[in-house]
Design a protein around this nucleic acid. Structure first.
Lengths: 217, 217
DNA sequence: GGTTACCTAGGCAGAACTGCCTATAAGTTG
DNA sequence: CAACTTATAGGCAGTTCTGCCTAGGTAACC
């Protein structure tokens, strides 16, 4: 393992390190150190400042001071989580203790570092976070493509898909037709349209691709 | 089962609290307090003692001292995890710090309590752990039933199931037969046996129930 | 040596699926 | 109003599935 300043795969890759800390000295020294390693860094003096600027879409990770006046790190984490963002969070803290760290990690934080910490450790965690983000993006891209196809289906077609996915033992036209009160022939017609729109060739394939995000209800 | 001073929802329900701590005073006071609340408690003075007695099947949770001579709490946790046990672990510690707690929680510990702690907090965590175990048992029971059915399939039948699950676009007898180098008619025969053994009626149902634990390879 | 299990494979008939066509009615949109 | 979409439904031919039957070869087990 050769640890270098410039890993072969560009570590930045469009990802941003958001740094939120009320201590200006820390902001300055950390952001300088990170920028020297070619990380794109944005700094904020408070959780509120961050929330004002953050668009929820920019991929990256959040280095977050736990103890800050106003909205503290935990509150920001809770808010971001409930808002559905998946920005990985690395806490840094001057006075946080065991209970705080436990709560933060349980809530999904990637790590909880006590100041002072070695920059190498922070860098390592940032890389972990970025790898995580890359995974999420890949997974999301896949499900977005799928979602786009499903969005082409009409409500009746979706109804039929739902029925087949949640009742895979009753997928024949006769059974589905009976359940929906329509002719089996009409179900044939809908099924053909569904397979055509989703670009698949069999009901088996439909079950396979649909049950992931139609599992609910 | 004798009638005792059980709370409305029996908190014990056959689950055991395993208590591992090298401090005898703690073992005694904690086990007494838990037994007074009708918990079934087993105490151990070391990780080694626990491992000798633990059969890996008794459901319950583990209250584990982090800093012990010999094998410490983290090592025991790592061992149990790698051995495939899902015993929830609640760490208690006299001297552990933030890094230790972070590592423990990341590794899946339910909580990390600093001594001294209030018994009410511990009780609460134990209840959380027991609820978790109950969930796991329910989930396991379901997948065990499924596994039992799949175990009745012959190797050739499993091969066909795997092919259909991982290639849901090629589930017709003709395609599967071509892929396996056998007659479509033979695939028909296997398919019928498969559906019969799994007590299902369609390939769609097969895909639906098989892709959960045949997803790999 | 007989029994059992498994893999192989075919015949045949009825059911279901598939792809092509048409067609009506309702609702939306330009 | 015309055009379009959606849901409905049928005809027809070819393919596939399904359930019933038979049957040969191989391997394991008693």
């Amino acid at each position: 393992m050769k640890e270098q300043a410039f890993p072969p795969e560009d570590p930045v890759a469009g990802l941003t390190v958001f740094l939120v800390d009320d201590d200006e000295a820390i902001r300055n020294s950390l952001s300088r150190a990170l920028q020297k390693r070619d990380y794109r860094v944005e700094t904020f003096a408070s959780a509120a400042d961050f929330l004002i600027s953050f668009d929820g879409k920019t991929p990256g990770c959040l280095i977050l001071d736990y103890g800050m006046p106003g909205m503290n790190g935990l509150e920001l984490q809770t808010y971001l989580t409930s808002a559905g963002h998946d920005l990985p969070i690395i806490f840094i803290t001057g006075h946080g203790g065991v209970p705080e760290s436990v709560q933060a990690i349980k809530a999904g934080a990637l790590d909880f570092l006590e100041k002072p910490f070695r920059q190498s450790v922070l860098i390592e965690r940032i890389e972990t976070a970025f790898a995580l983000v890359a995974d999420h993006q890949a997974a999301r891209a896949g499900s977005e493509r799928l979602r786009a196809k499903f969005d082409r289906l009409t409500s009746r077609e979706i109804e039929i898909v739902r029925h087949m996915v949640s009742n895979p033992s009753e997928t024949s036209s006769k059974e589905v037709g009976a359940r929906l009160g329509i002719s089996p022939r009409t179900v044939d017609h809908h099924r053909a349209r569904i397979l055509e729109k989703l670009q698949i060739r069999s009901v088996a394939e439909l079950i396979s691709m649909a049950q992931h995000f139609l599992a609910r209800d």
